[in-house]
Amino acid sequence: MHGFRQHLPGQRALLALAVLGLAGSTFAAPPADMVPIPAGRYTPLLRSTKDAPQVAVAAFLLDARPVTNAEFLAFVTANPKWRRSQVSKLFADSSYLENWTGDLEPGLKAPLPAPVVRVSWFAARAYARAAGKRLPTIAEWEFAAAAGYTGPDGRKDEALNRDLYAWLARPVPAVLADVATAKPNFYGACGLHGLVWEWVDDFNTAMVTGESRADTGLERDLFCGAGSIGAKDTGDYAAFMRSALRSSLQANNTTSSLGFRCARDVTLTASTP
């Protein structure tokens, strides 16, 4: 572990240079709290025959960690309409920030360094906009989260899979762990797995209908026609769970284990002082 941690920063710096170089920017380094994710291709879990088998993902910057209660407290302090007592029910359901003690008091059940949960997609989006950022897309998030601890393909990373399923095997704790406890993946993004679920910008395009056997049927055309999806993808149970969760949500919904982090275009980053 020590060797791994020690050599990673250098590797990340190289990666950052590569990402930014690809973007054709003259910019030197990304903000300290974000990590660069290189361009790549993402294979959607479920799609109809009309969809392309792979989606290109441009290089982008991603928050190294999920947004914390402390950060969200600063946001609602500055933006009263997103406080629990003032938020519109159209934008956040009745359990919005329910675990907080008060409008501006996260309290004991929501420690400041822990990820913020019980936030709606609208709220997460508003936060991102206020921070000069945006929410990542499904393709971006999944591409970044596909990395393991030591390489870009996490499917072969036994340690990651063990941690991931261990997290899935535990109910949501009454008090979430601090974001600092999350391990970095190959790109330096921490806690994409094993801390909280995270909102994505286009969550409502996830194709799980709730009748997952019918969803498999969607895929069957693809198996017969193109046959481009390997069995390893139907075996990625965690990806199915993320897809199912996204599909079950309305934009004003909140849950006890759903938070978010922000992203930013590389070019935008480069032009910002």
Partner: peptide, 8 residues
């Protein structure tokens, strides 16, 4: 499909 229900 009719009972697909998010947490809470």
């Amino acid at each position: 499909a009719s009972t697909f229900t998010a947490p809470g």
